[in-house]
Simulated scan of single mutants.
Amino acid sequence: MNRRVEIIEGLRAFLTGLGSRSRSELDFIAAYEGWPDLAAREFERRVMAMLAGLSAEDLAAILREDVNLRELAEHVLAEIDGAQRHGQA
């Protein structure tokens, strides 16, 4: 099963459970058209919550673009993947 199908099936299960408990909430979800905007705001909120664990100095370095957090994360992922392939993790 591809990831898109997994996501759709998970959302379908969520909506089915919600609809069985509260038809009015499911009706609202079906009628509301602003879901992409709300999802973008929630995504940003979650990313901001991850940043809350960083020090002010770390945040300032990211802000000044002294550190590219995305690139650093990619390097760390590659290191972890390499260690796992070599039985080191």
Rank of each mutant, 00 (worst) to 15 (best):
R45P: 09
S20V: 05
E42L: 06
F14G: 01
S20L: 12
A61K: 06
I29N: 00
A31L: 00
W35Q: 03
L26K: 05
E74H: 13
A78D: 10
I7Q: 04
A61L: 04
V5M: 06
L77Q: 09
E6M: 12
A40K: 03
A78I: 07
V76T: 08
R41N: 13
V47N: 01
D27W: 10
A61W: 00
L54P: 03
A56C: 07
R4V: 13
V5E: 14
Y32N: 02
E79L: 11
W35I: 05
A83D: 13
T16S: 10
A56E: 07
D66C: 03
N68K: 15
E74M: 14
A83P: 00
L26Y: 04
L69Y: 04
G82C: 11
D66H: 03
A40Y: 00
F28V: 03
R64L: 15
F14P: 02
E74F: 10
V76R: 04
A61S: 09
R23K: 06
H86T: 15
E74W: 13
T16C: 03
F43E: 06
N68G: 14
Q84I: 15
Q84F: 09
G82K: 10
A13F: 05
I8M: 14
E79R: 12
L72H: 15
E9M: 06
L26A: 05
R3H: 14
A78N: 10
E44W: 09
I29D: 00
G19T: 02
I8D: 13
A83K: 12
S20P: 03
E42C: 02
L77T: 09
E25V: 06
I7E: 04
A83T: 05
L77C: 05
L63H: 15
Y32W: 06
N68V: 14
